[in-house]
Design a protein around this nucleic acid. Structure first.
Length: 419
RNA sequence: GGAGGGCUCGCAUAGUGGCCUAGUGCGGCGGUCUUGAAAACCGCUGUUGGGUGAUCCCCAACCGUGGGUUCGAAUCCCACGCCCUCCGCCA
């Protein structure tokens, strides 16, 4: 949810944000009129309720012979109150619907345009030159690290088994990520992969991208696409002591994505899959500190990329390509020699107070309780990172170079070769 | 899955239809006293929405959630959720 006060005070800014996203500007006016309608409905119901209280006391105190007359008036009033309350709840629902329909306000400086209109903020490292690059699927099969055939046999397309060194690589990456996060002051968390509807909605995943989410109809639960969902829900309906901020969590969980609408995209290998594990950073900070925290998350992501000795670039994602909750998003794309392209490995979003409003997460500030800002950033999406490591660090002899930081977690191995 | 017990303001508790405009204790905050502290005493104490964006003031709502009965519900009725205890099943 965006700040209603801001919509009232500066509707043009909200309209401009909608326009940047390629969304409908008129929704801003719909929101404003829903807000007005709700206010007058509330005022009317409030005053009727006050009247009802007064008359209730009269009923209790009335002498026996006055009682029928007073009761008659009270009954008539009760009907009015009921009607007014009905209108109020209708207006509440209408406001909520209008409010939920508007995406977060785009941060100043975000490039305009769509998916192709990102701005490259930094390019780091030199893409390795590989004479006849194999892709990670081929390398993974040779190393007996990735088995997509049996993944398909057992679970269908976009599923995989990690075996042998592949499985060990996952544990090594998770440990490396968690060690870095803990050293930076993050609280390590193992988060649930199933969440309630209100948590899923609060994080903004049931809006434009709801087709992307798995739902268990029998239990009315959703499978998370990222532990961001559970980590955002963690403090829902809480007031966080200002002294505890910033609060930083590093969550590990499985992630599930339906990949609806991505038919034919990355069908080979484990770059785009229905299930993978991920270590995710999540920060709760005072609203004023959000933009700076966003830079910190990006720096931690870059630190991890550097440890993996990958060549990558950092991009500022254009407004039209932002998720519902994000005010700004930076992606890190690493080089895949077999594709001769940079592909997304991590993504960090500043959700400002958007998620916190929906999930009712506040802190005591100078003007009473105020929503906090929430931010998330990938530290390591395991499957895709393994794909990149194999591709990026492949050697002419078919082995794979192991970055120095990973060696202690892989029994000191400097290369991976076929067993 | 089955059987019981519970859910009230940060915590603990009182409250079985209208003097509940939710009391009391603890904790917390402020003050008096004190060289300082403790004790004692005094005062304050949650959340949401609205009243011309206002830390004061006024109004309304909130007693797990959602419905219902009633002129009126923390209190009565129904459904659901969660927690606890036991039984069954189980990694």
């Amino acid at each position: 949810m965006i700040d209603l006060k801001l919509v009232r005070d500066d509707p043009d800014r909200v309209r401009a944000s909608q326009r940047l996203r390629g969304a409908d500007e008129s929704m801003v006016d719909a929101l404003l009129s829903a807000d007005d309608a709700r206010r007058s409905a509330v005022a009317r119901a409030d005053s009727l309720r006050a009247e009802q209280k007064t008359i209730g006391r009269e009923v209790a105190q009335a002498a026996a012979h006055d009682r029928p007359a007073v009761l008659h008036r009270a009954k008539a009033l009760a009907d009015e109150v009921k009607a007014a309350e009905g209108e109020q709840s209708h207006a509440d629902a209408a406001l909520r619907a209008a409010h939920m329909g508007i995406a977060n306000i785009v941060e100043e400086g975000v490039p305009p345009g769509g998916e192709a209109d990102f701005v490259t903020l930094a390019t780091v490292g030199t893409p390795p030159i590989v004479a006849h690059p194999k892709d990670h699927t081929e390398i993974g099969a040779a190393l007996k690290a990735i088995d997509t055939d049996r993944g398909a046999k057992v679970s269908g397309a976009r599923f995989y088994f990690l075996t042998g060194i592949g499985a060990q690589l996952e544990f090594a990456l998770v440990n490396l990520a968690m060690q870095q996060a803990a050293a930076a002051g993050f609280i390590p968390v193992i988060a649930p992969a199933l969440v309630k509807p209100e948590i899923m909605e609060g994080t903004g995943f049931l809006g434009a991208h709801s087709a992307e989410v798995y739902r268990l109809a029998d239990d009315d639960l959703y499978l998370v696409g990222t532990s961001e969902v559970a980590l955002a829900g963690y403090h829902s309906n809480e007031i966080i002591d200002a002294a505890e901020l910033p609060l930083r969590y590093a969550g590990f969980s499985s992630c599930f994505r339906r990949e609806a609408g991505s038919y034919g995209k990355d069908t080979r290998g484990i770059i785009r899959v229905h299930w993978f594990d991920k270590v995710e950073m999540f920060s709760y900070v005072p609203a004023d500190d959000a933009a700076e925290e966003h830079q910190r998350l990006l720096a931690w992501e870059r630190e991890f990329m550097d440890k993996l000795e990958l060549a990558y670039r950092v991009i500022d994602v254009a407004a039209g390509d932002l998720g519902t909750s994000a005010a700004r998003k930076f992606d890190i794309e690493a080089w895949f020699p077999s594709q001769q392209a940079y592909r997304e490995l991590t993504s960090t979003s500043n959700c400002t107070t958007f998620q916190a409003r929906r999930l009712n997460i506040r802190t005591r500030g100078a003007h009473g309780n105020e929503p906090v800002a929430t931010l998330n950033g990938t530290l390591c999406a395991i499957a895709r990172t393994i794909a990149c490591l194999l591709d990026h660090h492949q050697q002419p002899d078919g082995s794979v170079y192991v970055p120095a930081a990973l060696r202690p977690l892989l029994d000191g191995r400097e290369v991976l070769s076929a067993p």
